[in-house]
Design a protein around this nucleic acid. Structure first.
Lengths: 222, 222
DNA sequence: CATCAACCGGATACAGCATATCCGCTTCCG
DNA sequence: CGGAAGCGGATATGCTGTATCCGGTTGATG
């Protein structure tokens, strides 16, 4: 419908299009946001982002009134890419292998993205795009888990609800101060995956999987 | 050598003993420190501690010039208690069970102590008492790991160096926002322990265990 | 090319927070 | 009872991140 061919949309379709330089800057900011959040985490400042993009602070604040907004835009894209990984995993025949492969790919991505990891931990950030992507990922995982069990590869009692804690655990390993940024997280993922595999005469898992809070984990009191 | 029978020592033996009320307050502060750090983590303020102890801020700052000092005193005690757990574990016959039991007991302690968990993660805090306790724990674990392997219970390639990452992983589960403070971490510890058990025709673990940094993980640049 | 709205830059005001001190008053000790 | 040791907590200080404002610049339009 539009006249532009370069696959990106501005915010509102009804609104007047941005001036050419403004649109360019918008993308610069988004890209800078990706890089800065990946390197320094969500606690990076919009001023940091602006500086990294080679732009003035004011420019950034005009486009994205606060960090929340920019972060949602950035991680909306990022989570969509991970959702795509999950979608592709469903094509594989061996469901357990597919699940394991997805975890490895997604976590490899997270390994180089501190902001993404922080997002995984405390699920602040409640943009529509984010929850959509999250839901898609969850759904794919549900299917994979179900199929892996009917295929007899998955230990009894393991649920989709166990996936997030597992990701969190690996994330913790990545966050550990280490000599050099390394790949040791793969070692611990391997251990966990082996613990997840079905085995003859295996003790049942103690307790139910962790259930996430209904809403808004940020606040202290209800 | 001393005349006091109530098993606590002041700082320097050569120094003049504290006035009775001052000594009482010293303990009050230590206890308040334990409680506050456990509940609110290391980011709690000395002012918080003072208030919790029912004392003035000045009193606290006179005894412990900064948070670092108090925290080291508090967690020195705390880590010693955990070291004792490790020491007792060595008495058990089944080394794998002993190791598992120790992890469960220590982590159960950590579950109710946010400050202790934060200490486990980023190993800031470098007091002599702390490093001593840490070393003792490490040593006990080394022995348990070695013995568990000669008993054939432990998977090939698992090292004492894997213990800290495992603790970190479980800690991550505990830190996850959850409906109610719960015991689900036991579920994930069970999974990991099963991944750690020796099995016939088991794939070797990928990569070496994580090696901690030589010193001072707090700083950014060398 | 002229004109003007849209846009940019970044110094700076503001607010929240943890840290730490200072000194008049109180309590213990001998 | 005298004075040293100890106490309290209001308050000064410094730091950090957030966000605004407005004079100057640039792109769009006829």
């Amino acid at each position: 419908m539009g006249r532009r061919t370069e696959g990106e949309e501005s915010a509102a379709p009804g609104a007047r299009p941005l001036r050419r330089d403004a649109e360019l800057n918008r993308r610069r900011i988004l890209q800078a946001g990706r890089e800065v959040f990946a390197a320094r985490g969500l606690q990076a400042t919009l001023n940091d982002v602006a500086h990294h993009a080679g732009l003035g602070v004011g420019t950034v604040y005009r486009k994205y009134p606060d960090k929340q907004t920019l972060a949602e835009a950035v991680f909306g894209e990022e989570l969509d890419e991970i959702a795509a990984m999950a979608r592709e995993a469903r094509a594989e025949d061996d469901a357990f292998a597919a699940l394991a492969g997805f975890l490895e790919r997604a976590l490899a991505r997270a390994a180089h993205n501190r902001g993404l990891r922080e997002l995984m931990r405390h699920g602040t950030l409640e943009g529509a795009a984010l929850t959509r992507a999250r839901r898609e990922i969850t759904s794919h995982c549900e299917h994979l888990v179900a199929r892996a069990r009917t295929q007899g590869a998955l230990r009894d009692g393991v649920t989709e609800a166990d996936i997030a804690p597992i990701a969190a655990m690996i994330d913790a390993v990545m966050a550990l101060p280490a000599e050099h940024p390394s790949e040791t997280w793969r070692r611990y993922l391997a251990i966990i995956l082996d613990g997840l595999r079905a085995h003859p005469r295996q003790a049942p898992l103690p307790g139910p999987p962790r259930t996430p809070p209904a809403r808004i984990p940020g606040a202290d009191q209800p």
